[in-house]
């Protein structure tokens, strides 16, 4: 029971990171981006390549930072992947979403993102093969927190949780203490009014893609570190991330964080009450319950 709760918090950390990017995009650009989760797999695979590159160029970095299964090479790879994935998100917007957006039909963006998701997922599959891959084949053993009841936590997961919380804190500061944060909120509230007041709409949108892509890359690597890399990981993560975004309320960064943890915990606690075959339904039952009580999510606001 308590073990499930702890597991849920740990799972929630990467779901939250993914949901933050999605909620920003959904809020500023006003569309449900089905290709967002593919940025997670893109980021994870880019890091896999960078990791191998760095480790080959500077072998010293390939040593593990015990007790983590993380290496310095992977840390550098994460940073590189953040940049590359952020730029990729920007590029995809430039090539596809921007053009579709300018045509201006409500559902076009959603379907364009669905099409992009298919493209990204299968291109990754063509490049890397369809089998699972790992950053490190060694198994990092869990630490025993308590014997009765038995509580186990893996050092990697603690690292993931701490790093995710730090990133969220940085994002919080960025949004609440900087001019950029204000302009972001202004655009979200009312794009034309914000423009009249001198906010560069174009640049704000670029920033949203960069931040969203970078956070997605981290989330993807953290997922890969905790589990494994597989080309369909984006598809598998899409639903929990969407659930987190919706439960938290579209547009609310704090909502996305909370939503991520709620979805993670619910997924892990579900087995306490439901037979294991039913786990995939849990995030949705949760969404429906939350939306029944709060039609715009926990932190979301009604808007036209």
């Amino acid at each position: 029971m308590i073990q499930n709760l702890i597991d849920g918090v740990l799972t929630g950390s990467y779901i939250s990171l993914g949901a933050i990017g999605l909620t920003l995009v959904m809020h500023i650009l006003r569309f449900a981006n089905f290709s967002h989760a593919e940025l997670l797999s893109l980021g994870a695979y880019v890091a896999l390549v960078c990791d191998a590159l760095v480790a080959a160029l500077v072998p010293v970095f390939a040593v593990k930072l015990a007790p983590l299964s993380l290496t310095w090479a992977l840390v550098l790879a994460i940073l590189m992947s953040m940049v590359i994935t952020g730029l990729s998100a920007l590029l995809i917007d430039r090539l596809v979403f921007k053009r579709v957006r300018e045509k201006g039909l409500e559902l076009s963006m959603i379907f364009a993102s669905f099409g992009m998701a298919l493209i990204i997922r299968n291109v990754i599959g063509l490049f890397f093969g369809l089998s699972p891959q790992l950053y490190s084949r060694d198994i990092a053993f869990a630490m025993v927190l308590s014997r009765d009841p038995l509580l186990l936590v893996k050092p990697d997961q603690i690292f993931v949780l701490v790093a995710a919380l730090l990133l969220m804190l940085m994002l919080h500061l960025l949004l609440s203490r900087t001019t950029f944060g204000y302009s972001l909120r202004a655009v979200a509230e009312n794009p034309s009014l914000a423009q009249v007041n001198g906010v560069n709409l174009h640049r704000t949108i670029m920033a949203v893609w960069l931040i969203g892509g970078a956070l997605a890359a981290v989330a993807g690597v953290f997922y890969g570190l905790s589990h494994q890399l597989i080309p369909v990981m984006g598809r598998d993560l899409l639903l929990p991330i969407f659930a987190a975004t919706i439960v938290g309320g579209i547009g609310s960064v704090y909502g996305a964080v909370l939503g991520g943890f709620i979805v993670g915990i619910a997924g892990n606690m579900a087995l306490v009450v439901l037979p294991s075959g039913y786990t995939p339904s849990v995030p949705f039952l949760l969404i429906i319950v939350v939306l029944m009580i709060r039609p715009h999510g926990l932190f979301g606001e009604a808007r036209a």
Partner: peptide
């Protein structure tokens, strides 16, 4: 799948 995705994206553009 890549082709199907491209057709949809192209159509919407």
């Amino acid at each position: 799948f890549v082709l199907i995705g491209s057709v949809i994206v192209g159509m919407l553009m």
